[in-house]
């Protein structure tokens, strides 16, 4: 029981750092030709999706908040707030769709997660910029979300067997 908890804590810590590293590395990538300016592939959503599947509610929210805190430290308050809003919205959405309903496949989860993430960011930029002009980006953003969501969803599906190996570590111990 005890060691299962520790293993879960370790995996949560590992995934937290993984999501921070992924989002940091991602910002070094040049803008993709097919994507509109400013669009990022959102690899750290993969981590949040897996976390919502098997780690649980507090762990997922912790990962999201830690990532937002990192964005706040490195890129300032507005970026931190955008990351928090986007992360929380997509995190909660993933907890519901992947954790509870279990109806979506990996691709659908990826798309939904990207859409939620971007919507959260758009809402924050609506308040910080104070103009509904930001919603002009909405159609472009939705299409970009489908593209990036399919990619992250496919990566999630490919990585799942390895993640599952990690999951066994703590779920087995928990049963004892």
């Amino acid at each position: 029981m005890k060691s299962g908890k520790i293993q879960k804590l370790t995996v949560t810590a590992l995934f937290t750092s993984l999501s921070v590293v992924l989002s940091a590395l991602e910002s070094f990538l040049p803008s993709f030709a097919i994507l509109p300016p400013g669009a990022k592939p959102g690899f750290s959503n993969i981590i949040v999706m897996f976390s919502a599947m098997s780690l649980g509610v507090p762990q997922t929210l912790f990962i999201v908040c830690a990532k937002a805190f990192f964005a706040f430290l490195t890129r300032g308050a507005v970026a931190g707030l955008m990351s928090l809003a986007g992360g929380l919205l997509s995190g909660v959405c993933m907890l519901i769709t992947l954790g509870k309903l279990k109806m979506t496949g990996c691709i659908g989860a990826g798309v939904l997660s990207a859409v939620c993430h971007n919507t959260g960011q758009l809402i924050v930029s609506f308040f910080t910029v104070g103009s509904s002009a930001v919603f002009g980006y909405a159609p472009v953003m939705l299409i970009a979300s489908v593209a990036t969501g399919v990619v992250t969803g496919a990566i999630l599906r490919a990585a799942l067997p390895y993640f599952k190996g990690l999951e066994k570590l703590f779920s087995k111990e928990m049963e004892r």
């Binding site: 109806m103 979506t104 496949g105 990996c106 691709i107 659908g108 989860a109 798309v111 939904l112 859409v115 909405a138 159609p139 472009v140 939705l142 299409i143 979300s145 489908v146 399919v150 969803g153 496919a154 599906r157």
Partner: peptide, 18 residues
Amino acid sequence: RLVTRADVIIITAVILLA
């Protein structure tokens, strides 16, 4: 699974919304 029926509905809905 990689893709379910719900996924197709989600993607279609997002594209239609856009």
